[in-house]
Amino acid sequence: MLERYKIYSVFDLLLEYYNEGRININREIHKQRTTYHDPCNYGRKSLKTFGHGYFEEGRIITKACAPNFVDMEPNREGNYCCGAGGGAWAMPFKTERVFYGRIKARQIQETGAELVIAPCHNCRDQIKKSLNQEYQLGIEVKYLWELVADSLVLPVKN
């Protein structure tokens, strides 16, 4: 099955477009300081399960769109979970989820970033809709593909 079909994560496809020069990016749109959240499932856990962690792909794309980039500490396989993984975003344990997120909130704050890129639905929701308010981060949060879509110079078609 895996030989017959190619399975794309969002990273694979965005990077394919980028490397093949199929997307034209305006680097002037996202000038604010920007950081990147490593999702556990595509990073640390993918590394362990499949032998490849998606650490660099998301950074290449993010830096291409938002050149004023700074990493959180720790990052990549050492990164902290947003606090909403494994179904926790939907679980009836909100108090615990917000408490869990305190480390993520602090990590973001320490970068001084105004824009946080999250390549996963869950992480984005936790950071944007919960941590941002709870910890008054005052940040903007975008999906990785939202960042690309907002940076696109669209071709003129008829």
């Binding site: 556990c40 640390r44 362990k48 902290y80 979970c81 993984g85 615990e96």
Partner: peptide, 24 residues
Amino acid sequence: TDWIWKCTMCAKCEEACPMDVKIV
């Protein structure tokens, strides 16, 4: 126990474990 549902299966523990216990 509800612990196993409050855990986010983030694997931070596993990454740190010197014995590579498959906690997740």
